[in-house]
Amino acid sequence: MDSVVLLRPVPDPVEELELNDDGNDLDRDYLGYVLNEFDDHALEEALLLKEAAGGTLTVLGLGSADEMEQILHTALAKGADEAIKLGDDLSHLSVSAQTEIFVSALEGRSYDLILTGVQAADELDGQLAVRVAAKLRIPHVSVVVGADAGDGSVRVTKEFWGGITADYQVQTPTVLGIQAARQAPRYVAVSLIRQAQQSGALSEIDVDPPPDKSGVRVVSVRVPETGVGAEMIGGDEEAAAEKIVEIIRAAGVK
């Protein structure tokens, strides 16, 4: 089973998000990016499939320059056969535009499975996994929590809600929007990442950003007011602990 994993960085969720002067986007000048956590799970699931059933594993990465190289080298170190960086620093494109870029990069390649994260925190105009599938006219399954490769098909588990899941037999090629891999994404030794950096296995494809056809425009952004209606507890941990116990007792818990 030959797989392609689509990777995108997102603004580091741990960082404080600042807004730009126009108030219609994040201030991206100093923003740090990390791999979308669901894409990391997609990569892990692809690695597990490759280990179980063989085949090739290619990763395609789109987005901010430095971080993407690091992300692709890490993927190579983990066991990807080939890593390709699409364009240079094409971060913050609409999902519609990302779809165009990934689809043209996939042209002429043979694959059974395309895997990517079920969503990314900045996917304002839809989910990449489903858009890519619809563009390629191949089936898709979102919110996948495990896959098992067969002959001409793949068996996947899709999660609904309340812990209820459904198993599907899906014809290949297909696109899977991965929610969680069967196991937590693996770590890889820094020495292996360094080896991957020196191996020259990372290639690049020039990409011109396509015009945005999403039809969706951000007018303004804001940081939602937190603590509205919430009473913020001040003081150190001791004072906070005392107050929290008081609140719990007042809520009728003895």
């Binding site: 489903v130 858009r131 619809a134 969706v216």
Partner: peptide
Amino acid sequence: YTSMGMDVASALSTTSGIPLVSF
């Protein structure tokens, strides 16, 4: 915007060209 809706919305938008807004 749920497990089922996710599989429907982006496919509808891509095939019809109607803009989609998520979240």
